[in-house]
């Protein structure tokens, strides 16, 4: 047990260092809060880093399709924690009728990516904290703690500075913004162990009801629950220590993988 605590404290220290370092470099920084377990853990760390305050704007990208529990949680804790919350929406696309039915990819692109892009432009944010983790998706394997995006939001993974010996490149040129990932080295299990240790409030969707729980949350239209009996944080930690199923298996984007697999199999691949 002592070993686990050491491990978590080390992660906590490193994340707080990254959070403070980024803030000292960019005063026009904001944080993305999806209200999920990772960004809520990040919020917890930010509050620790700045002694209970959140000294910058917190953005919630609202597609209009989030679970009711997410909105309730957001409003309760935004108030309780004194957060300067900015709700980000792409009103134009919504007015044009972009929705999950018109195509999930386009919906995500317009209501999330575009919405964020517009807000970044409008408020001239130079940096953005995100709660992504390296182990959550293949595409994030090459991510950096300080990761530059160009004006088109493109991530040029070849044009990234090395981060050897925890030396981070924290300066940005004028046409790019920097994404700061204080939780990059955390795993899903680390997050839940930390939530347990710190008693961090978490959206109820993560806890099993009638044998099902959400392991990853986003829009109601594109998430499905996994089979689980874990209705407490302790049980979730226990479940993760034995599970072999991927975290995002309930996400619609990952259903496409099943489709590709089927296509490849029918051709004799796999």
């Amino acid at each position: 047990m002592t070993k686990t605590l050491d491990h978590l404290s080390r992660l906590e220290n490193q994340s707080i260092f990254i959070i403070r370092e980024a803030y000292s470099q960019f005063r026009n920084i904001a944080m993305l809060w999806s209200i999920g377990k990772d960004s809520t853990t990040l919020m917890w760390l930010v509050r620790k880093a700045f002694f209970g305050k959140v000294p910058f704007a917190v953005l919630h990208i609202d597609t209009g399709y989030k679970f009711k529990e997410i909105y309730d949680f957001r409003d309760t804790y935004a108030q309780q924690w004194g957060i300067n919350l900015m709700v980000v929406k792409n009103d134009e696309a919504i007015a044009q009728g972009v929705c999950p039915k018109t195509g999930k990819f386009e919906c995500c692109n317009q209501l999330k990516t575009e919405a964020l892009k517009q807000t970044m432009d409008k408020y001239k944010f130079k940096a953005l904290y995100l709660g992504i983790r390296r182990d959550e998706h293949g595409i994030r394997a090459k991510e950096r703690v300080f990761s530059t995006r160009d004006e088109d939001f493109e991530w040029d993974y070849k044009n990234q500075s090395p981060e050897l010996w925890d030396q981070y490149k924290t300066k940005a040129t004028h046409e790019e913004h920097i994404r700061v990932h204080p939780l990059l080295g955390w795993t899903e299990l680390d997050i839940w162990q930390y939530i347990l240790r710190e008693n961090i409030p978490i959206v109820s969707l993560y806890f099993a009801k009638q044998g099902r729980r959400y392991r990853s949350i986003g829009c109601e239209t594109c998430c499905s629950p996994v089979a689980s009996q874990a209705d407490t944080v302790e049980k979730i930690v226990e479940e993760l220590q034995t599970s072999t199923i991927s975290e995002r298996s309930g996400r619609a984007q990952d259903k496409e993988s099943a489709y590709i697999m089927q296509k490849l199999r029918s051709l004799g691949y796999m």
Partner: peptide, 20 residues
């Protein structure tokens, strides 16, 4: 057509976005 990203044992499907 398939890959396993480092730090995982999860099958992924590289596409045009993965072309470097």
């Amino acid at each position: 057509f398939v890959d396993i990203p480092i730090n995982t044992y999860r099958i992924s499907f590289p596409n045009y976005l993965s072309l470097k």
